[in-house]
């Protein structure tokens, strides 16, 4: 289970009110796409879910428990940039979380423990379609491959919630379409709730089970400082998509994808 419950959330920076009175219930295994104009606070909202920033007022509950005040392994993340570690190879990046978890002091694994993790990591690398690149460094990968790597690195930790901050915004349309197929497959297979910030409406409606729009209801220049953005639209996609369940309407597009690697 991984339901998020956000109640009367406010975020202020000094006098500037960024978000006001945001309340939303996100059911377990939903795929929520957050859209809205630039500077409307949707990324700030995501960073609060992540624990990178703390809300001024209100509460965020994950399965009924308040979120810890810093990021942790229950919430995975993929940013638009800097999501992978440049000094580790593809294999090293994917194994990294497992190594940190198992070896609290040396932060490295050796021998049989390493082989177990390595096997799991290789399976994960194959699942995101990066076989053959295990020993490359991120600088040797294309943008799309780096984001696949970032997904693999986050998902090997089996997070309850996966947070995506415009993860595919810098990719060209062909690559983006390919990674959408992968993203959909991963969402169907892994028991997680996904919250994604995007600028791309098409992406929001292709992937989401629900599209949530942030907007400033009062946006006159003199009001900008004292009125923040809030949720103005909350659109459930129809026909509904359900994680792990083939769609009866468009199984080829919305159902779980069986083919490996793509």
């Amino acid at each position: 289970m991984s339901a998020l419950s956000i109640k009367n959330l406010w975020k202020e920076y000094g006098d500037q009110i960024v978000l006001e009175n945001v309340s939303i219930e996100i059911e377990s295994r939903a795929f929520v796409a957050l859209v809205g104009p630039s500077g409307c606070g949707k990324s700030t909202f995501l960073r609060m879910l992540l624990g990178q920033e703390i809300q001024t007022k209100g509460e965020i509950l994950l399965d009924g428990e308040p979120l810890p005040k810093e990021p942790g392994p229950d919430r995975g993340v993929v940013f638009q940039r800097y999501s992978v570690f440049p000094h580790l190879t593809v294999l090293g990046n994917v194994m990294f979380g497992k190594e940190l978890q198992a070896s609290r002091f040396a932060a490295r694994l050796f021998g049989s423990a390493r082989r177990v993790v390595e096997e799991e990591a290789r399976a994960m690398i194959a699942a995101v379609g990066l076989m053959g690149s295990e020993n490359k460094y991120p600088a040797q990968l294309s943008g799309g491959m780096q984001q696949r790597l970032a997904l693999a690195q986050a998902l090997i930790m089996r997070p309850k919630v996966l947070l995506l901050d415009e993860p595919f915004g810098a990719l060209d349309p062909g690559i983006r379409a390919e990674i959408h197929v992968l993203m959909k497959k991963l969402w169907h297979e892994a028991p997680m709730t996904v919250v994604m910030v995007t600028h791309d409406m098409r992406e929001a409606f292709t992937l989401g089970t629900r599209v949530v729009a942030f907007e400033r209801p009062r946006d006159r220049p003199e009001e900008k400082l004292r009125y923040g953005a809030t949720i103005t639209r909350d659109i459930a996609i129809w026909p509904p998509r359900q994680a792990g369940v083939p769609s009866i309407f468009r199984p080829d597009r919305d159902g779980p994808v069986s083919s490996k690697g793509q």
Partner: peptide, 10 residues
């Protein structure tokens, strides 16, 4: 982002 990513990897 890199530090935050490491935090999410525990």
């Amino acid at each position: 982002e890199m530090i935050v990513k490491a935090e999410t990897l525990s």
